[in-house]
Amino acid sequence: MAAGGDHGSPDSYRSPLASRYASPEMCFVFSDRYKFRTWRQLWLWLAEAEQTLGLPITDEQIQEMKSNLENIDFKMAAEEEKRLRHDVMAHVHTFGHCCPKAAGIIHLGATSCYVGDNTDLIILRNALDLLLPKLARVISRLADFAKERASLPTLGFTHFQPAQLTTVGKRCCLWIQDLCMDLQNLKRVRDDLRFRGVKGTTGTQASFLQLFEGDDHKVEQLDKMVTEKAGFKRAFIITGQTYTRKVDIEVLSVLASLGASVHKICTDIRLLANLKEMEEPFEKQQIGSSAMPYKRNPMRSERCCSLARHLMTLVMDPLQTASVQWFERTLDDSANRRICLAEAFLTADTILNTLQNISEGLVVYPKVIERRIRQELPFMATENIIMAMVKAGGSRQDCHEKIRVLSQQAASVVKQEGGDNDLIERIQVDAYFSPIHSQLDHLLDPSSFTGRASQQVQRFLEEEVYPLLKPYESVMKVKAELCL
């Protein structure tokens, strides 16, 4: 049975990233139509530049190519590739079939990587351009969430054990800070992308030097003109047959890092959902379990974690691919890159769409948070109580021993009897502590235990987050809708 299948058929496997999760716009960027249309555009740009620099290419040939950029006979191309065992030459023939007058000058002087690699770089750039505003929107939604809850005390956790208090907004800023680093890295790697350009079979530009009869300047002009037509500021000066596969490492490393950030955020949300302090959106008709109707599973956060793990592992592909590119190139890269580049971007696209949807509907339960604080705060307040007693004339050592005994009794009630923490009640009825009984409410005010959390939130948002989001103001209103 021949390899390949009808990918629109229910009898043929289709990647869930495309069929179930990723956005239509990201799927289109990695589609065959987008790819092969870009090949034709690159052939047109090459012909236009070659004509401008004096090669015998007519206006009629150029116009014929322009008129057929979208006229792609995919069936013919597939048949040609089956016959020739070469995808680029299959599309040269297919393009030439609908451009008979231009057929002889299509791909003039070029090698397969002229269309293959340059198209990949265009796709990487455009895919990054799709991700950047999506990530900015996630940051914006979380920034709104953090600002609104900047002063809401909550129990902090280290080692997932109760620690000092923080605020809900401050905790959210930990998430935002990681995503801001990801946004900066995505922008950097996007701006650092260079075009492969017009380089020939081993990167020496020998074929173009021959076409222009040894004119170095025209060869350099050709490279520059096509690079500018493709919208790049610069091209690699040095290439082998391909652009260095280190570029793929750079791009997928940034995406993998984004995956790590999203995994951490969504894990926190899942843990908070278990504590009943916070939940992701839950639709009115949504079913959490087929057997347990009360369940409210954090399905979206779980999906993000599941896909983020996949995204983090994909960076190993370009690392290994770059390491086995012998001399000017081997074909070890080809099949692998067809999979890992598309999957990385479709996965990143999915987790950003999902995280935006989550961040637009996060639900906080202040009463649950308050109750958990009441359970733990008495123990945390013991040092403040000791200091207040010393100020009232008591002995630190005597007070410490009193607190120690009462704390152990209260802990026994919590752990052995399943009761509430009654340390404060014990202190309130103990005559030894009568000098500070009137101060206990103040000493137990949760806001006095959150330090500068709310001020940190305000400063972080104003100095770091809002300036970073400013270039994306025009796209901030787009909502994230999930079908599944």
Rank of each mutant, 00 (worst) to 15 (best):
T313S: 13
A291I: 03
K284H: 10
V465F: 04
E425T: 13
G116Q: 13
W45K: 02
L155H: 05
E360T: 04
D120T: 07
S454R: 13
I106S: 04
D129S: 11
E220S: 11
K101S: 09
P366G: 05
V29S: 07
R338C: 02
I72G: 05
A388R: 05
E280T: 04
A411W: 07
L331N: 06
E462K: 06
K218A: 12
A47D: 02
L311T: 02
V262F: 07
I106H: 01
E279D: 04
D191T: 13
Q184W: 10
L461D: 05
R452L: 10
R188M: 07
L69W: 12
L183V: 14
S257D: 07
K284R: 13
Y21M: 01
H107C: 05
L314T: 08
W39P: 00
E220G: 10
R404D: 00
G203N: 01
T354F: 05
N71W: 11
A322W: 14
V138E: 09
G96Y: 05
L222T: 05
A410W: 05
N68Q: 14
K229C: 07
L275F: 07
A308L: 02
R188E: 06
Q51M: 11
E148L: 10
A348P: 03
F208I: 11
L355R: 01
D333C: 06
R338P: 01
G394E: 11
Q177A: 12
S23M: 07
R296D: 03
L44H: 09
K470W: 13
V465S: 03
R329V: 03
S412A: 11
P446W: 03
A392P: 07
V457A: 08
T202P: 00
Q320T: 12
L193I: 14
P153K: 03
L311R: 01
L179M: 13
D268S: 11
D178H: 03
L307I: 09
L311W: 02
D333V: 02
L271W: 02
Y34N: 06
Q164L: 13
E220N: 14
S454W: 10
K187L: 08
Q221N: 12
T204W: 01
Q409A: 13
S438H: 12
S359Q: 08
H7N: 15
M76L: 11
H437F: 06
K75E: 13
E50W: 04
L355F: 14
P293S: 07
A230R: 01
H91F: 06
M225W: 06
Q177F: 10
K246T: 04
H107W: 00
Y114M: 05
E60Y: 12
G288H: 05
K75P: 08
V390L: 04
V219E: 00
C340T: 10
L183S: 10
A150H: 14
F282G: 13
